[in-house]
């Protein structure tokens, strides 16, 4: 593997981390969906590059799935939901954006500190790829935790899943069937969650999860 190959892989994976930060930063719903689509594009590029490097044609299918489902279908569907629900205004956060970003930087540092010593036996390429993937997972998780709105929580969950796929594609030898089943489970999760969104909306006139807490008699 030439240094250029490795650099391109790092560029693609690193851009995913950067896009995760961008996801954290967004305060408009449509912008969030756009950034998520870019996130999926970066994932598709990264996986496709891995497929080329590892001479693993089935990874191309994985990249295609990422591109079609996560890059196109899910953002478009979410956009329609957002339009129908009329919630394209600002996103309510629990913790304000600045501290969240700082915490996200700390998480990236943590994942590098954790991953680099653990995977000493592997080549430098896989190690850094795994560190990027763990960062993406943690940032997705952070997004789920710090957002009130259900749609942005869904986005956080999806970006977390993108991180998992990135890790799996870098680690050589994820069977296609695993990827397909994960892809389908995410799709099903998306459908279930969107149905729930509408139900919640019907019942409470909002998708702010705080309303759910209030209906349990526990205003925050």
């Amino acid at each position: 593997m030439s240094p250029l190959d490795s650099d391109i892989a790092h560029l693609l994976a690193g851009s995913m981390v950067l896009l995760s930060f961008l996801l954290l930063y967004q305060d408009r719903m449509f912008a969030l969906l756009n950034v998520f689509a870019f996130h999926a594009f970066a994932l598709a590029g990264s996986v496709a590059w891995q497929a080329y490097l590892q001479r693993a044609p089935h990874l191309f299918i994985t990249a295609l799935i990422a591109l079609l489902f996560k890059g196109v279908i899910i953002p478009v569907a979410l956009r329609r939901i957002v339009v129908r629900l009329g919630i394209h205004r600002s996103i309510e956060t629990v913790v304000s954006i600045g501290p969240t970003m700082l915490f996200g930087i700390a998480l990236v540092g943590l994942s590098i500190v954790v991953m680099l010593p653990v995977t000493q036996a592997e080549g430098p390429f896989v190690r850094e790829d795994l560190a990027f993937a763990l960062s993406v997972v943690l940032l997705g998780f952070l997004m789920m935790v710090t957002r009130r709105n259900a749609v942005s929580q869904v986005i956080g969950f999806m970006s977390l899943e993108n991180g998992l796929v990135l890790a799996a594609s870098g680690a050589r030898g994820m069977p296609l069937v695993v990827e397909i089943s994960v892809g389908f489970s995410v799709l099903i999760a998306f459908m279930v969650i969107s149905i729930f969104l509408f139900r919640i909306r019907e019942r409470f006139d909002t998708v702010d999860l705080q309303a759910l807490d209030m209906s349990r008699g526990e205003a925050l």
Binding site: S111, V113, L209
Partner: peptide, 24 residues
């Protein structure tokens, strides 16, 4: 009697704490 987000925060905090332990 916590909210979903609070539970998620707990899971997240546990994950980060474990990673810090592994890292240090």
């Amino acid at each position: 009697f916590l909210t979903i987000r609070n539970y998620l925060t707990l899971v997240f905090a546990a994950l980060v704490a474990l990673l810090i332990i592994v890292g240090t």
